[in-house]
Each structure stands twice: as C-alpha cells, then as structure tokens.
Amino acid sequence: MEKDEFKRLLKTARIELDEADSVSIEKDINDILRFFDKLQEVSLKDEELAFHPVEIPEKLREDSVEEKNKLGGVFYNAESYRFYFLGPKI
C-alpha cells in the first residue's frame, strides 16, 4: 500500500495516528496484507460463501407492537439533554 493510500485509509477509518505509530502501523499493515495474499494461491471460484459457520434459520415474529427502547435505558450511559442525545455537529 502506497503512503498516500494509507493516509486516505486513515481518513476513511477516522483514525488519527502520531508520527511514530503511523510509521509502524503502515509497515504492519503491509506485512499483514502480504500474509493475507496467501489466499490468492487458491481459486475456489465456485465455492459457496459461508456468512455464518452454521445455518441460521430465518426467524419471523408476529407483526405486533412491542415495548422497546425505553427512554431510561436508551439514555442510561449517554450524554443527554431533555431526552435528546447530546452529540457533535454534523
């Protein structure tokens, strides 16, 4: 991965690194990607994709009103003001 691509990636991932961590993590990431490239040795183009390790049956529930997300629970740990979350500007 080129330096510019790594910088773009940090922005996408919203991770800020100091200079020392940036150098070492960039090197680690290139090493790990080379390690991942081992998968390119096999084709497996007709193999199914296992999104879960076991089959998860589709579960349906009655289309009825449920009492969920009680205000006390929703704001239990959050910064809030009069039943609104306090958060950053978007």
């Binding site: 919203r14 740990n77 959050a78 910064e79 979350f85 306090l86 958060g87 950053p88 500007k89 978007i90």
Partner: peptide
C-alpha cells in the same frame, strides 16, 4: 457520546469528534 468515554467538546465537527 453514547457509551463509556465522552469527548464532551461539542464545538468539534462530526469527523473531528469521532
């Protein structure tokens, strides 16, 4: 702002805050 550690500086824009 929702769990655990709180930034609390709400003058930051969303990306800076995150």
């Amino acid at each position: 702002f929702k769990y655990g550690f709180k930034v609390k500086d709400f003058s930051l824009n969303y990306n800076e805050f995150f």
